[in-house]
């Protein structure tokens, strides 16, 4: 293929609308001065679909970013932390302790410790939803976790399903592209139906996609198909939750917590309302990691390299 042919292909690909693409974000609390903090810690959650960085100053949330995970974990981790620290004039050297989590946790080059996302989500949910939180559902990019924790956010029971993408963020992205509906609109549009349809029967993303196409051909509206898929996803994750039991209070983390089409259907099946939070549900893992870092740096002191800088 010639260079111009490549350019043409790239241009054509560039014009294709990516309905699955969610908005990357970064935020810092401008009312806080990080230079006043005794300990600055960070948590980096390198997930299969998104990567988050959270910076905590003396145990208080200072800033975060949520970015798309790239083709390698180290770059994704750097990209996520860069998005936060560039907003406030901080450098990596100013951070006393970094904890990596998520599936790419062992590949965060500047992390002092790696902790599983299960422990980090429990700790993060405890911060975001309060100490009454006992059951956490993390609906991640390519896996799903059901977690029980105590009043301190310590895990007491967990279950994870990472064998299948059904009931995960990636599955929702596939449906967004297939339906040509921006991913943020899927939830609200799933309620814009005359009557609630039954769930699509396939839990597998690949088969659900085929079934969705079949339903469209049978005359279903896009909204009705999305509603059926949201219901299937809700039933799928509730089955996972029920394996460990659901105790009040109940909290949902991960990207799908932003999709009311799934969340409200989960609440309907469980007959239990999830605790709402003012924080971004996607940062729970990274926030928990940063809080672990804060505990560790208080106990162990600042690691040698950071202390020297």
């Amino acid at each position: 293929m010639t260079t111009s042919a490549f350019a043409t292909t790239a241009a054509t690909a560039g014009e294709k609308k990516e309905y699955w693409r969610w908005e990357e974000s970064a935020w810092v609390d401008e009312t806080m001065n990080w230079r006043d903090a005794k300990f600055i810690t960070a948590g980096i959650d390198v997930g299969s679909v998104s990567s988050q960085a959270v910076v905590v100053c003396d145990g208080k949330l200072f800033g975060y970013s949520s970015m798309r995970t790239g083709s390698n974990s180290p770059d994704s981790a750097r990209n996520a932390i860069k998005a936060v620290i560039e907003k406030c004039g901080m450098t990596l050297d100013n951070i006393h302790f970094v904890v990596g989590t998520g599936y790419g946790r062992v590949n965060v080059p500047f992390a002092h410790k790696a902790i599983t996302e299960i422990a980090c989500h429990a700790r993060g949910a405890n911060f975001m939803g309060g100490s009454a939180i006992r059951t956490i559902l993390d609906m991640g990019g390519q896996d799903c976790k059901a977690i029980h924790c105590d009043e301190k956010g310590k895990v007491t029971n967990f279950l994870m399903n990472d064998k299948c993408a059904a009931g995960t963020g990636r599955g929702m992205e596939v449906i967004a592209d297939l339906m040509q509906i921006p991913i943020a609109e899927l939830g609200p549009r799933s309620f814009d139906v005359d009557e609630e349809p039954a769930a699509v029967s396939s839990v597998c993303v690949v088969f659900a996609k085929s079934e969705a196409l079949g339903l469209l051909k049978a005359g279903w509206s896009k909204n009705k198909v999305v509603a059926a898929y949201c219901q299937a996803m809700a039933e799928r994750v509730v089955a996972l939750l029920e394996r460990i039991g659901v105790e009040k209070e109940f909290f949902i983390t991960g990207g799908i917590a932003k999709n009311p089409g799934v969340v409200r259907r989960i609440e309907r099946i469980l007959k239990l309302e999830a605790v709402k939070t003012k924080y971004d549900s996607q940062i729970a893992g990274a926030l928990g990691a940063a809080l672990f870092g804060y505990t560790l740096v208080q106990k162990q002191g600042v690691p040698a390299k950071a202390a020297a800088s």
Partner: peptide
């Protein structure tokens, strides 16, 4: 802590 390792698929639930 109760750690559940395994999965659920079309053929059943398999957790240790």
């Amino acid at each position: 802590m109760i750690a559940n390792y395994g999965y659920k698929d079309g053929s059943g639930e398999y957790y240790i």
